[in-house]
Deep mutational scan, measured.
Amino acid sequence: SPEEIKAKALDLLNKKLHRANKFGQDQADIDSLQRQINRVEKFGVDLNSKLAEELGLV
């Protein structure tokens, strides 16, 4: 269901964000992850996106 997909995506992105902060990645990478999280919260996951591929939806 779209809600489950959204939850999985947010979980994955939050893990990536945590790792980025923990290991001191570029601020641009961290900002990009934050924008992705905001986009998923607002609009859900686009099944044509790279994120959908990472989640194994495509």
Rank of each mutant, 00 (worst) to 15 (best):
L13R: 00
L51Q: 02
E3K: 07
S49V: 02
G24F: 07
E3A: 12
D26H: 10
L13C: 01
K16G: 03
K15S: 10
L47W: 09
Q25F: 14
D46W: 02
A20M: 13
L51E: 04
D31G: 05
H18M: 12
A9S: 01
H18I: 14
A9I: 10
L55F: 03
H18W: 07
V40D: 01
R39L: 15
L51H: 02
Q34D: 02
A28R: 10
L12T: 05
S1P: 07
L33M: 03
V58R: 10
E41Y: 04
D29E: 15
I30G: 02
G44A: 02
G24P: 11
F43W: 10
D11V: 04
G56E: 06
A9H: 02
K6T: 07
L33Y: 03
D31L: 06
L33R: 00
H18S: 12
V58E: 08
K6Q: 06
A9W: 04
K22G: 07
N14I: 13
L51R: 00
R39C: 15
L51I: 07
G44W: 01
R19P: 03
S1Q: 09
K50D: 12
A28S: 12
D46P: 07
Q36R: 03
D46N: 07
L33A: 00
G24V: 05
L13N: 00
D11C: 13
V45D: 02
G56K: 06
L51N: 01
K22W: 09
S32G: 09
N21V: 15
A28P: 05
K16T: 03
Q34T: 11
N14C: 14
H18C: 14
L17T: 01
N21C: 15
V40N: 01
V40P: 00
G56I: 04
L12E: 07
V58D: 08
Q27W: 09
K8A: 11
N38M: 06
L33N: 00
N21Y: 10
E3W: 07
R39A: 14
I5N: 08
L10V: 04
N21G: 08
L13K: 00
F23T: 14
L12G: 02
K50L: 12
K22I: 13
R35F: 05
G24L: 06
G56T: 04
